[in-house]
Design a protein around this nucleic acid. Structure first.
Lengths: 168, 168
DNA sequence: CCCTAAGTGGACTCACTAGTCCGCTTACCG
DNA sequence: CGGTAAGCGGACTAGTGAGTCCACTTAGGG
């Protein structure tokens, strides 16, 4: 047994993941395995050799998107302006959600994963910094922010205004 | 031929609509006709005698919810405080959305109906009054409000704050 | 270059769902 | 009451989608 895939298998796996990401983003969890396999240019049985169920493939794709969100949060932390850092991440995350139906539909089922834990740590830091800088209301947690992101794809300005610290 | 249903048929239709409302609210558009018929205590062929397709039944149920929203908006107009009237409607509408998956999923496909037109007129009036009273930002339309309602089921306070007129 | 284990995909099964059909039941009019 | 049309629902069809199987192909080590 080897831990590395044969070259053709590796190529097919890459294509599969790319096709699955597209299909799930576009059609949500209802995207069919047949459609994904077709788009990847492979037979549908090949999908089940890599992932035991459709659910497993879906989870893999969604976790990949969550890792992307976490990376965006980490990147935002580099911005010295805490308010801008938060806003930038929030808008970027809203875009990712807007382009990924399956992410919206399945984020909740990933809550117990390392990936979401890492995301929450990074967002928590963004939130804390922005609050200290007076750019974000205090009665808000990282979890609240993540729940508001999908809503923000339509009217981010309104929601960001709602999140800013009250003039008090 | 008569325009009134036989007593048993009338009763079954009422049960059907009630069961469909529950199932679509709970499971969204994926609720099956079999499940609905079972909950209504009728055979599934009876469903198709009243509604030609599942889509037609779904639309009937969603329009009913939209009429409810319009009624809530009309009721809110009775409140002399324009800001309170708007807030009250907004929160009530968010609750209706939170309890009805199919409404979220199918509101868009009803946009060309009289029901939605009536809803927009009523919400338009709420918005206009609240803006004149300085309780709502000016760069917002009734349509924007309706797009924000489903988002507001989670954190209505944040979104209402975002909607209030800037202190400027 | 050849042997073989890893990899492949077409053809299956099985479960489920929308929609149809038709012989039986029942409300209700006269 | 009794006849009948309106109403009923079980059994059927057709289509789809997840997941399995197995005879065939091929990468790549020796």
């Amino acid at each position: 047994m080897s831990l590395t895939l044969r070259a053709d298998a590796r190529r097919n796996l890459d294509r599969l993941l790319a096709a699955a990401a597209e299909c799930f983003a576009e059609h949500g969890v209802d995207a069919s395995i047949d459609e994904i396999a077709k788009r990847a240019g492979i037979g549908h049985a090949t999908v089940f050799r890599r992932f035991p169920t459709k659910e497993a493939l879906l989870t893999a794709v969604v976790l990949e998107r969550i890792r992307e969100l976490a990376a965006a949060a980490e990147a935002a932390l580099a911005d010295p302006d805490a308010g801008q850092a938060f806003d930038g991440f929030f808008r970027a995350a809203a875009e990712v959600y807007a382009r990924n139906r399956a992410l919206v539909e399945r984020f909740d089922s990933c809550i117990e994963t390392e990936e979401v834990a890492a995301l929450e740590v990074a967002v928590g830091r963004l939130v804390w910094r922005a609050q200290r800088a007076g750019a974000l209301r205090r009665d808000i947690t990282a979890l609240d922010v993540m729940e508001l992101v999908p809503a923000a794809s339509r009217h981010p300005d309104v929601i960001l205004d709602g999140l800013r610290a009250r003039p008090s």
